[in-house]
Every structure is written in structure tokens, then in C-alpha cells.
Design a protein around this nucleic acid. Structure first.
Lengths: 185, 185
DNA sequence: ACCGGATCTGACCGATCGGTCAGCACCTGA
DNA sequence: TCAGGTGCTGACCGATCGGTCAGATCCGGT
């Protein structure tokens, strides 16, 4: 409780965060310059680096809520086994994908690159456990392929439907996930 | 027949093409410099630009075969209707994804950016028709969501299984595609 | 012996990248 | 009135980007 509430976080800070989220989602992390973000907000590039220690730090602060939810999902999956864990993973990931559409969209393709960063290394392990849960903890290549298709497909898709309301996107994603993951023996 | 056969295309040219494919797939288009490609082959950056007019031209030559197959698939889909077209699209796209795993993987996230390029604009229309065929030409958002999840999921996944042989990956992808696209009414 | 084309290179270009820094304007409490 | 912190900026830095260019090297034909 010593950091989220009661922090002033000037308006500019939040504006920069929002502008960065928009830009990163549109043109990717590497494809967005600090100049772009500054121009959107109407301040100088130096101001961006006054509010955030570095471009990486800006990304980290942007992803923090999504990562927190991902870690919580990971813990919840670990508390279940078998098909139960599969259901928890599917529902939880769809929730996460819908809620953090923009944040996930900005990982487009740069996912593996950005994970190299020491701050994000443990995310890789979490996503591996997610794939395993989606695959129903099966080693069969068909199950792992299906798991990755659904996982990547949902992550990639939710960013494309920024206009559809959550309560409509969520059941549509869940339906296709359950259909695709239905394991054939 | 005046271009593909009987062209010497020096060994360096092909090496550069192969190295670029590898690099682009690993670190993306924007994330790969001409220096990187030159270093892999063991020549100078100037040599890369001797064999290819520009970095864009290198990408175009790299994608040409995949684009040709995509255009042929588009024509084949147009020759069918309804569920028949859906099957043709699924089988055709899986074939394309498996065959051109590396080329598709390099589009990771930069897909929308690279499509801005005038050379690739018509690809956008083709992919829209592909989504429509996958959705069984339905306007229902559930169908369109499912279509995009499968399309994006396959495209994203095939690049992750560079080690699995085609004859094993193909049926696995097809199975999950048919399962996911099974339209409920 | 000479030439012309193909292949390749180092040096260089302007632009842009992420990041630093000294200092300016403003507000507030003493 | 003034000291000090906050928010912000223009000027600048080294590195790297894609791309250009003059020239070195090699090689087959005449």
C-alpha cells in the first residue's frame, strides 16, 4: 500500500503513459520513438525522460498491471490440476487478454525480444506454464500446437477488436478457445 | 519463363537472402540491420546493397514466393462458395503457413506496418478475404473472432515449430483449425 | 596486352535513435 | 524577499541506422 494510492503522478505523467500505450500498440516498441510519444502529448522528448528513467522503464510501468494479473493467474493455475487447470487457464487468459488488449497488442512480434530484458525473464517461464496448462499438460505435439495456436491467436486477435465491448469479446474468445482445445484422446 | 531459371544469381546473393530470412524471423524487420545480415554472411554492408537495391527490396524478394502462393490461394478460394470455400481456405492457408514458416514469422507484429508499403497493399485485401472465408462469410462477430484467432494463431505458431517436420505440423494445425472454426449455428 | 563488366569494399553521408545536462519558469513555505 | 523544489526545455552527445560512392580486385574475351 505504499505506492499506488496517494501518489500525485502529474497529469503529464499519465498522458505520456497513455500516449505510449497507444503508440506502442500501433507501431510496436522498437517502431516508436520517444519523439513520437512526446509529440502526441505536446511536450519535448526530454520531458518524457524526466518522467521515466528510460524507454525500457516506460515500458515496464506500462506493462506492470498486466504482468501482475498474469502472475496472479499463474498462481491460480498452479493451485489446480488436469482439466480443471485447463479451464482456469482458458478463462483467466481470456479475461487478461480482453482487459489488457492494448498492452498485449504492443508485444506483437517483439515478445521474444523484449523478454530478453532481465525484468521480464520470469514472464517466459510463466508463459511456458500457460502453454502447458492449455495443452492439458500433454506432451503430444498436437496438443502443444493447439495450445500455442489458441494462446497466440487470442493474444493477437484481442488487439484487433479494440472497438468491441468486453462483454461481447470475452464469450466469443472463450467459445473458440474451448472448441479448439477439445482434446481428441 | 524469362526470370526464374537460367539466372546465375551468385552464391553470395542466395546466402544474403537466406541470412536475411533467418535474421528477420528472429529479430524482425526493423530489428535487423544490414550490418547484421552482412556479418552473418561475412561480407560488408555495402555488398548487401550491391545485391539488393534497398532493405525493402530485400524484403520483397524474400517474400515473393510466399506472396505468389497467397495470391494463388486467394484465386482458388474465389472459385468456391460457402463451406467449400472455408475448407479450401483452411487447407490452403495451413499449407502456406507450413511451407513458408520463416517468411511468415518475420511478419510478427510488423505485419500492419509493412503492409503500408505500396508493394504490399493488395495483400491487405487478400487477407481480408481470407478472414471472411475462414468466418464462413458470416457477419456474426463470433464467427469473425474465431476466424481471426485461428488465422493469427496459425501464422504465429508455425514460426515457433521450425524443428517439427511439415508432415507432422500440417495435420496438427489443420485439426485445431477445423475444431475452432466449427460454427455453432 | 588491354579492356569492360561483375563483385566487393572502406570511407563517408544525413537522419534519427536513446539519453544527458545546464538552466529556465514557476510555485510555495519561511 | 528569497531559497528551494518541481516541471520542463533546447542544445548536445555518441551510436547506429539505411544508403551512396569512388575505387580496388578479379576474370573472360579480343
Amino acid at each position: 500500500m505504499l505506492e499506488d494510492m496517494a501518489r500525485p503522478t502529474t497529469a503529464t505523467h499519465d498522458e505520456l503513459l497513455a500516449a505510449a500505450a497507444r503508440r506502442f500498440a500501433l507501431t510496436g516498441y522498437k517502431g516508436t520513438s520517444l519523439q513520437d510519444i512526446a509529440r502526441d502529448v505536446g511536450c519535448s522528448k526530454a520531458t518524457v525522460l524526466y518522467h521515466f528513467a528510460s524507454k525500457d522503464a516506460l515500458l515496464c510501468e506500462l506493462m506492470a498491471p498486466a504482468i501482475a494479473m498474469l502472475e496472479e493467474l499463474d498462481a491460480r493455475i498452479a493451485a489446480h490440476t488436469g482439466a480443471e487447470a485447463q479451464g482456469v487457464a482458458a478463462e483467466g487468459f481470456v479475461d487478461l487478454a480482453v482487459r489488457f488488449r492494448r498492452e498485449i497488442a504492443l508485444l506483437r512480434g517483439e515478445f521474444s525480444d523484449l523478454l530478453q530484458q532481465p525484468t521480464f525473464t520470469h514472464i517466459q517461464q510463466i508463459s511456458e506454464r500457460l502453454v502447458a496448462a492449455f495443452a492439458g499438460f500433454s506432451d503430444r505435439p498436437e496438443a502443444r500446437v493447439a495450445a500455442l495456436v489458441v494462446l497466440a491467436g487470442i493474444a493477437e486477435t484481442c488487439g484487433e477488436f479494440l472497438d468491441i465491448p468486453d462483454e461481447q469479446l470475452r464469450p466469443a474468445l472463450l467459445a473458440v478457445a474451448y472448441r479448439a482445445l477439445e482434446v481428441t484422446t
